[in-house]
Design a protein around this nucleic acid. Structure first.
Length: 257
DNA sequence: CGGCTTTGACCGGCGC
DNA sequence: GCGCCGGTCAAAGCCG
């Protein structure tokens, strides 16, 4: 009888040891994942400081600025349409966002979720260039314009070669918009981080808080979000394999921070 | 006069 | 089928 109980306990202990070992391995993997995310957040933090002290931007595309697309560690294709956020003077009623290309406005509409009107633009080279964009003020923070681009230009800005969409030239030509633009991609982290840089929670009072403080708050809250997200994924047994593959990929490529 | 913006009308998708 | 909503059309007006 004792021997039966003993073997039962032994099996139980072995199972628990296996479970413990598996949890330990998962924890190590998660630790690496969180470290990678922290690195990305540090890069964001330093870029935000750089923008604050070194504005307007000089010759750096927002994608490069945030280190998001040089070498994606987890390969998720860039979403189409893509969005950028541009800080502007809130008193400026114009939704004409100077990005180096010429646009023709073909409509304006007040949408349900945002009291600010949404403007619809087509590339002036249409129909040969099928690119469209929508521009609308951010509902939570009217100092930001949200521009949604659909399609890709098949020509250079202003018809001249060598201009990037976010070239210093195109930015300086804009009298009202310059300070911050950040891309929103299909990655869940990138999307949340990018959005939260400008779309803070409604509980924040923008009128009394300096912009920089608000950004810092959001970065801090994003750190928590990343950790919560990783923790929630870890509860999914099928995630371990996918996570290991993603971490392996991320470690096999140079850090872009 | 040509190119652009404005703005009300119209259309199609979607949910109920 | 109906109403809502986002997206587009197109006529009218504006401007250089």
């Amino acid at each position: 009888m004792d021997s039966i109980a003993h073997s039962f306990c032994k099996v139980k202990v072995e199972a628990l040891q296996d479970e413990l070992e598996r949890s330990r391995k998962e924890n190590e993997t998660l630790k690496v994942m969180v470290e990678v995310m922290s690195g990305k957040l540090s890069a964001l933090r330093s870029n935000v400081q750089e923008i604050g002290s070194n504005s307007p931007l000089s010759g750096v595309s927002p994608y490069e600025l945030y280190g998001l697309n040089k070498r994606p560690r987890i390969e998720i294709p860039m979403s189409k349409p893509s969005q950028i956020l541009v800080k502007t003077d809130p008193k400026d009623k114009s939704l004409n966002l100077k990005d180096g290309y010429q646009w023709r406005k073909y409509g304006q509409k007040v949408t349900k979720d945002n009291p600010s009107p949404r403007a619809y633009f087509r590339c002036s080279m249409a129909p040969s260039c099928p690119v469209k964009k929508k521009v609308q003020r951010c509902a939570e923070d009217k100092t930001f314009l949200v521009a949604t681009y659909e399609g890709e230009h098949n020509h250079d800005p202003n018809g001249s070669p060598g201009h990037s969409m976010y070239s210093p030239d195109s930015l300086s030509r804009s009298s009202r918009s310059s300070t911050v633009s950040c891309p929103v991609t299909s990655s869940p982290f990138q999307t949340e981080v990018a959005l939260d840089l400008t779309l803070s929670s409604p509980t924040h009072d923008h009128k009394e808080k300096p912009r920089q403080t608000s950004l810092e708050d959001n970065i801090s809250s994003n750190t928590n979000k990343v950790e919560e997200y990783v923790a929630s994924l870890a509860k999914d047994p099928s995630f371990t394999v996918a996570l290991a593959a993603a971490v392996a990929r991320s470690l096999s490529t140079p850090r872009v921070l």
